[in-house]
C-alpha cells in the first residue's frame, strides 16, 4: 500500500499511460494554459495603478454594471421559466412534447451571431413583436431589455437541462406523504419540491449567469452598443483591441476571467456541499 501510494500512478497491465498523459498535458498546455497564463503575466506587468485605472474608469464600471445586472435578470428569468418548463417536460404529457424537449437545445446549436440578428429582427421597431411593443413605449432592441432577452435565450438550456434530472429523481411518495399529512399542493411545492431541487436550481442559475457575463455574439446585434448605456464588457474588450489598447484589453480580460473562475469555484462548492448533505441524509 505504501509503495502504491508513493507512486504517481497506480500500476496497471494496460499500456499507453505515458504517451496518453503526455500528449494530454502537452496539448492542454499549448492550447489553453499557455495562452491564459500569457494574459495574466501581461496583466501583472501592467502594474497595479494602471490596472486599476482601466478597471475603475466610468465606462468600464458602467459596462460591468450592465453586464452583471442583465445577466442576473436573465438568470432569474431562466430559473423561473426554466423550472416551469422542466416541470411540464418531466411531469406532463402533451402533443409535441418530444419536439419541445429537443428544441430546448436550440440556443446551443444555433451560432450566436445568427441568434443575435434573429432576435433583433423579431424585436426591432418593424419586427413581428417589436411593432407592438415600440408604440407602447417599450424599447427592447437597442436598449437594455434587448440584452436581457439575448442572455435569456442563450442561458435557457443550462437551467432546463440541469433541472430535468433532479425533477426526475424526485420521489412521488414524499409528495403523497405531504398530501396525506394535509399539505396543500402549494405547500408541497414550496416546502418539499423546491428544497429538494435547490442545488440544481442554484447550479442552473450559476451556469446561466456565468455564460451570460461572457456572451458576445448574440448581444452585440441587439444591444446597439452605446457607450455607458448598452455596452457590455466583452464588447468593450473588443473595442479596446480594435483601438490597439492592448493594456486596457488585457486588464479588462484578466478581471473578467477572474470573476468567471470565481463563479465556477462557487458552483463546485455548492455542489460539494449539496452532495455532502445528500450523503448524510
Amino acid at each position: 500500500m505504501g509503495a502504491a501510494t508513493s507512486r504517481i500512478v497506480k500500476p496497471s497491465v494496460l499500456p499507453g499511460f505515458g504517451p496518453a498523459l503526455g500528449y494530454t498535458v502537452f496539448y492542454l498546455s499549448a492550447v489553453v494554459l499557455l495562452p491564459l497564463a500569457a494574459m495574466f503575466v501581461k496583466a501583472a506587468g501592467l502594474g497595479w495603478s494602471s490596472f486599476w485605472e482601466t478597471i475603475a474608469s466610468p465606462r468600464v464600471v458602467a459596462a460591468y454594471q450592465l453586464t452583471f445586472g442583465a445577466s442576473a435578470i436573465a438568470a432569474i428569468l431562466n430559473v423561473t421559466f426554466g423550472f416551469v418548463l422542466a416541470w411540464t417536460l418531466v411531469r406532463y404529457s402533451f402533443p409535441g412534447k418530444k419536439l419541445v424537449d429537443a428544441a430546448i437545445d436550440l440556443p446551443f446549436a444555433l451560432p450566436t451571431a445568427v441568434s443575435g440578428i434573429a432576435l433583433t429582427a423579431v424585436y426591432a421597431r418593424n419586427g413581428w413583436v417589436g411593432q407592438f411593443l415600440e408604440p407602447a413605449g417599450f424599447h427592447v432592441a437597442y436598449a437594455p431589455p434587448g440584452i436581457v432577452l439575448a442572455l435569456t435565450f442563450i442561458g435557457l438550456p443550462f437551467v432546463v437541462r440541469t433541472l430535468q434530472p433532479a425533477l426526475e429523481d424526485l420521489d412521488f411518495e414524499v409528495e403523497e406523504a405531504a398530501a396525506s399529512l394535509g399539505a396543500t399542493r402549494r405547500q408541497t411545492l414550496v416546502r418539499v419540491i423546491v428544497p429538494a431541487v435547490l442545488p440544481a436550481l442554484l447550479t442552473g442559475f450559476a451556469l446561466s449567469f456565468a455564460r451570460a457575463i461572457g456572451e458576445y455574439g448574440s448581444v452585440v446585434f441587439i444591444s446597439g452598443n452605446i457607450p455607458m448605456k448598452t455596452e457590455i464588457v466583452p464588447l468593450l474588450i473588443v473595442t479596446k483591441l480594435e483601438n490597439y489598447d492592448y493594456a486596457g484589453a488585457t486588464a479588462l480580460g484578466a478581471s473578467a476571467l477572474v470573476i468567471s473562475f470565481a463563479i465556477l469555484f462557487l458552483i463546485n462548492v455548492t455542489q460539494w456541499l449539496a452532495a455532502r448533505r445528500h450523503r448524510r441524509t
Partner: peptide, 13 residues
Amino acid sequence: AVSPVISGLVYVL
C-alpha cells in the same frame, strides 16, 4: 468558463 472574446484575446497577446 472563458468568454469567447477572451479566448481570442489570449491568442492576440
